[in-house]
Amino acid sequence: MCMNSSDTIMVDIVQGIMVVNTETIPGKVITETYGVVSGSTVRAKNIGRDITQSFKNIMGGELHKYTELLQESRAEAMSRLVSDAMARGANAVVNLRFATSAITPGAAELFAYGTAVKIE
């Protein structure tokens, strides 16, 4: 269910602007750069989820709710990055990087940054 919401955000990204994590976009020429753009988000699940996940952690294995949480957060951070890039008049973002930091157990800060460019 939550994977769907991140999927729709991804579709918006793909339609709006081209985002890649390579230095150049294969087959395109970069004509202008607009500097570093970034987007970040801190998200957490509700306490009920935290309790069920900590029970699951005792028995090991994958913690699906946290996987969903991080996927959603990453999509949100990326959509913020894309709107930042659009505001600068870019039509692509190259060299995208992700960074993560844990603030408290169960909450995560996701940070996406890249270079806004114009391609032809």
């Binding site: 294969p26 087959g27 294995g61 913690l63």
Partner: peptide, 20 residues
């Protein structure tokens, strides 16, 4: 990088898993 030139579209893909 562009080791093959004839590319029509590009975009970022990501996936992850939380394991304990």
């Amino acid at each position: 990088g562009s080791y093959r030139k004839e590319v029509s579209a590009a975009g970022v893909v990501f996936a992850g898993a939380v394991y304990g």
